Amino acid sequence: MLRKRALTAGLVAALAMVLTGCLLSPGKFTSELHLRNGGTFSYSYDGEIYLLALSKLAEMGNQAENSGSAYIQQPCYSDDEFEERECTSDEIAVQKSQYSARQQKQQKDAEMLRAMLGGIDPADPEAATELAERLRRQKGWNKVDYKGDGLFVVSFAIAGRLDHDFLFPTIERFPMSNFFVLVANREGGTVRVDAPGFSAQSGGNPFQGMMAGMAGMFAATAETAEADGESLPVFPELEGSFKIVTDGQILANNTDEGPAASTAGQVLEWQINKRTQVAPTALIRLTN
């Protein structure tokens, strides 16, 4: 039990670090980006998106913190023989001060998390429903179904003129979040595509690298949790494909096999899984 609590505390600490980036993570998915001469584009994403703040890992963290919410005096020991003794009034005062500081920090962290989620309280059972409704109001989100444990199954598609940079995903009222795909406009008709969300390793995506470490920590608690009859948090399983289809000039890319011909132009394709070390990237010149 002590080992389980220690590992859970480690997970909670890692979760707090991840939430500073308001982690969104793909699960199983297919995604396509079409870039056309003349300056038009279309983008689609079909599959799973995880919002870690709404997963059962956050619930585990809350339970771990709340399990000792009432102040309990800790034992004091003699310096020479390390034998338990009665605490002095000063030592009790220090313990109470430290306890109060921890309580204040927990409250501050909870307030920060709500702010990062655009006012949504992850402890509220209706939080996921509220977030799904917010996404459905945004253009492009054609389907948003919440499946529990922070997992959303979505269908997103949008098209327009590429006269501005494009990011996916963006969520209304989220002050910060990591993105899966960035399409950046450069002078002279050149477009750079980066997909840091479609990489499992820290070199391509620090958030995903942290997620992989957390998943390893969680695996160590699985046997104990199952023995206690507890439900386990769900961690994203990264698996999917990302394609860029263009009739423009491909200047650079990091696919394994380079562009393939198709009726719509050239196709760059990346197969993504938990072993993917380098995030997809490409540089393409479009003509007006």
Rank of each mutant, 00 (worst) to 15 (best):
I158F: 11
I92P: 07
L131T: 03
E133W: 00
Q74G: 06
Y77C: 04
M176A: 14
F174E: 06
I158D: 14
D165S: 08
Q73H: 00
G118T: 03
A115D: 13
T129Q: 15
V144K: 03
D121H: 06
K108Q: 15
A93I: 00
D90K: 13
D163T: 02
Q98F: 00
E86L: 09
L151C: 10
F180C: 04
P75Y: 07
C87F: 05
G160A: 04
Q74Y: 02
Y71P: 09
S100F: 06
A70E: 15
S97E: 15
F179K: 14
Q107M: 14
V181S: 10
N178Y: 02
L117P: 09
R136C: 06
P122L: 00
I72F: 11
I120D: 08
G150N: 08
M112P: 00
M116H: 13
L151G: 10
P122E: 05
I171L: 08
A128K: 04
Y77N: 09
K147D: 14
S177N: 13
M176K: 12
G119M: 04
A70P: 00
E84I: 02
E172H: 06
G160C: 06
S78G: 15
M116N: 14
P125F: 01
P122R: 03
D165N: 13
Q95V: 00
Q104T: 13
C87A: 05
G148S: 11
L167V: 07
A159L: 04
